[in-house]
Design a protein around this nucleic acid. Structure first.
Lengths: 115, 115
DNA sequence: TACTAATATGAACATTTGTTCATATGAACA
DNA sequence: TGTTCATATGAACAAATGTTCATATTAGTA
């Protein structure tokens, strides 16, 4: 057991109908991947912070009271998934949200959390 | 080093301004927690599937070609976080999305992933 | 060029997480 | 009541993840 054959009587019609309507597996995986990135407290705090105003790494480090290294690692992940944009100004690097779409996703999440 | 004091010159104004505008830490944590639940491929597939039509555990098991146990564990997590509702009908338990809000979140995520 | 500030990154480690395996619970039916 | 089907759940284990520590890179400045 412990494989698929353990299931005896699934409703084949329903399964086939849903299967035909499902988005591509690749899309679903990308969606989950995106939510996973949003699903970390440090990253979410960073995103909420820079949604208010562009901030540099050391601002974020001070704001969240976390090491520069920890912040920087998380920013890298946010960069790699195109959730933030950044620009260099002298020695500092300033981060902001990638676009309005990301902002809306976060706002919706906060809405839901407030309920 | 490796503590907050490593930061010498954060822009205090900016930090204080953002800090005053940040939602409660608890809200941010709940938001991240919600996204984290959405951030798993199996759970996302389940949610997308039942967004089309109510399905029972064995339907989901057949559809996703995963063990009943694995599906059931994930459904428990989705139940505990109020992302799905369920009803018993004889020996089967049918799952569907908790509400329109959850549907919209998922749809927005898919939108973003398609870009 | 040497030095310092700001940021980035690799390796290691502890923690979290998802699946499997085994078993329990709950409902229908003989 | 005993059996079977559908689902739920606890324990264990492997894989993924976030932080720390140490160090590298990049830019400004003496």
């Amino acid at each position: 057991m412990n494989n698929i054959c353990e299931i005896k009587h699934s409703n084949e019609e329903a399964v086939l109908e849903v299967k035909s309507k499902m988005p591509d597996s690749e899309i679903i995986e990308k969606t989950a991947e995106c939510f996973k990135i949003l699903g970390d407290i440090t990253r979410m705090k960073i995103l909420v912070a820079i949604s208010q105003r562009e901030l540099c790494v050391c601002d974020l480090s001070a704001l969240l009271r976390m090491s520069q290294s920890a912040i920087s690692h998380q920013l890298r992940i946010l960069r790699n998934t195109n959730l933030v944009r950044f620009r260099r100004e002298g020695k500092s690097v300033y981060y902001s949200l990638a676009d309005q779409h990301v902002l809306k996703l976060i706002e919706m999440g906060i809405e839901h959390a407030k309920e």
